[in-house]
Design a protein around this nucleic acid. Structure first.
Lengths: 114, 114
DNA sequence: AAAATATATAAGGATATTTGAATGTTGTGT
DNA sequence: ACACAACATTCAAATATCCTTATATATTTT
């Protein structure tokens, strides 16, 4: 499959925010309502609602109403996979290529000084 | 491990851009230089260089010099994993929770009309 | 040495994101 | 009906991102 799946890239962009990632990480553990996040994140209620609205408008989460509570839950199946990657330990970097594939020569990465 | 690994979140944020993802997807296939991207992406050379600089400054890619070419390559091992997820086909959504875990009752998601 | 090539950097304005503050809405309890 | 609780929305300001235009740097070619 080709890369430019606009929706997924949009989703990734929305996900890639410290507060929203913490929200999503919590939701990955189970349903939570707004006031839960307020305590947990230490940010204002309107701000929590704003982040939740953004995630909701992108179809990443949804909620149902229980009295005056709104119980949020995860919808987008990509999210747990992203969270797994963020928690994964990576040792070192990818192997550097031997040389320039165009000219078949060139200085090696380690040789650069600048 | 706890979620807030600031570096990885920053990396994710930088990655989550349509042009940069296409760059990274190309680099995942092999070394490329700036003019390759210029053709491939159909954007201006300065803009290509800016995206490359951003990725470079975050340690996501690196390059080596071969004459007047700069041969870029992938460094961050998280990138291929992210690309895999973006290419993965997801069928449907995550299962909705049965009810509110706090009050043990509540309207179900499908029952909402608004 | 001058010109050309490949790329980087800087400056600028347009647009988008983020958050705080204020206000609205909806449901519950009395 | 009134007050409160839980949450959403709106507005505005600060900040960040993005791309264009212009200019700079380094290397090779002539």
């Amino acid at each position: 499959m080709a890369l430019p799946q606009k929706n997924k890239i949009e989703t990734l962009r929305v996900i890639a925010h410290p507060v929203r990632l913490r929200i999503l990480d919590e939701l990955a553990k189970g349903v939570k309502c707004v006031s839960d996040f307020e305590d947990f994140l230490g940010i204002s209620q309107p701000n929590v609602s704003q982040h939740l609205a953004l995630l909701r408008n992108h179809g990443i989460i949804d909620y149902y109403i229980d009295g005056r509570l709104r119980c949020y839950f995860l919808v987008d199946p990509m999210v747990p996979d992203i969270l797994d990657i963020l928690k994964k330990e990576y040792a070192g970097t990818l192997p550097a290529p031997a040389c320039c594939p165009i000219t078949k020569k060139g200085k090696y990465p380690g040789d650069r000084t600048n």
